[in-house]
Design a protein around this nucleic acid. Structure first.
Lengths: 208, 208
DNA sequence: CCTACTATTGATCACACGATCAATAAGATG
DNA sequence: CATCTTATTGATCGTGTGATCAATAGTAGG
């Protein structure tokens, strides 16, 4: 089971080694959650002494926080690119919901949930969580405002609507994480809910 | 800072001591979260040796799980009693949403979020979480079905609607937990969302 | 080729966790 | 009052965590 005893790690440039550590932290977080991002787990993954990880990172709280930020901002960029290809705000919002609720990003959902819990004991992480949440809110708000401007949506507080949309999405994903039994239908009915929030007619959101 | 050195705990009946431990665990969980429910923290709170807590509980995983169950089922009972006093399903649902989103139960929200995260490493807790979620689902589903039977609501899958409602509620509360900055408006717009899900006209849910 | 720099490491600390067990002492029972 | 039952404890183990530091060994530059 245990790895063959490590001889000695090859000497690498600081930039290269630092990148290796960051990559390992991201991989561990996605595979086993933020709680598994530990001095020793990261060191073991890149086959290096724990002290080396400590040498490159100021402390583990910071590494956990930056790892969270990396994962979540990458997700936003990825989704943004996908959704941005569509022409109308209505279509963009529909695809956004469909994408975030399709159940293929449970690894990221775990990171979110653990970040909410861990944030209560890790100040740096808590601040990062707030920043990333705000980035997401701004992104969704942009879609909503575009829809209002285009006469597709109806609301007087796009920021509030954005918060509520994200809250709904995260809640549904978090639930699905736990009740893996029959969590096939997350998102099946959220369309109507969103229609209610944005003054759309029934079925208007998903319409072709 | 540290307590005056403990002399010796008074001898109590097993039932009494067991109850004391359970109470302490619940209090600690509500004040500091499930992660703080530890052998030593519970022992310190009731001024007793850590070994005594271990003597009464099979293991800490079980105590954490039962503590979660106690807190959450009590919440359901409390809310159920409050909401059940209203005559129509529409009013009951409106009060349910208002109550769960009024921001006075953040301590319980912390317990939920930490349970989702902790459940990945604590099998007993994970099972308890699923059970309690199902109890909540059954309760909400009952309200929805009553509304359908009364001709107030319109849906063909009350269970699915119940899951979605709970997901939305938990997500909004979890969000509010982290972005304490301006989380005053959770629930301000969920009414319209629910109206969309249940085929109600705009503002119908909150109507007198 | 030699030297200076520094990436890397082993050893070690202090702390917190759950858990076990023999020993103690309080109270019940006779 | 004597005996027995058992609630309670101190001591201890094994594990896991983050962190520090002197010592080592590659490697680049003179």
């Amino acid at each position: 089971m245990s790895r063959p005893p490590r001889k000695k790690a090859a000497r690498k440039s600081p930039a290269e080694r630092a990148a290796e550590i960051v990559d390992a932290a991201r991989a561990v977080a996605l595979e086993q959650g933020l709680y598994a991002v530990t001095l020793r787990s990261i060191a073991a993954r890149i086959d290096v002494a724990p002290a080396l990880v400590a040498h490159y990172e100021p402390n583990m709280d910071a590494l956990v926080a930056s790892t969270f930020g990396t994962i979540v901002s990458a997700e936003l960029a990825e989704v943004g690119e996908l959704v941005g290809a569509l022409p109308t705000p209505r279509e963009r919002l529909a695809l956004l919901l469909e994408t975030l609720l399709d159940g293929t990003r449970d690894d990221v959902t775990v990171v979110w949930v653990e970040a909410w819990a861990l944030g209560r004991r890790n100040e740096v992480l808590a601040a990062t969580v707030r920043d990333e949440m705000d980035d997401w809110r701004a992104y969704v708000q942009g879609i909503v405002e575009a829809g209002v401007a285009a006469g597709e949506f109806e609301t007087d507080d796009a920021a509030s609507v954005a918060w509520q949309l994200l809250g709904m999405i995260d809640g549904l994903n978090a639930h699905a994480l736990v009740r893996w039994e029959d969590a096939t239908d997350r998102g099946s009915r959220i369309g109507h809910a969103v229609e209610g929030m944005l003054g759309l007619g029934r079925g208007a959101l998903a319409a072709r």
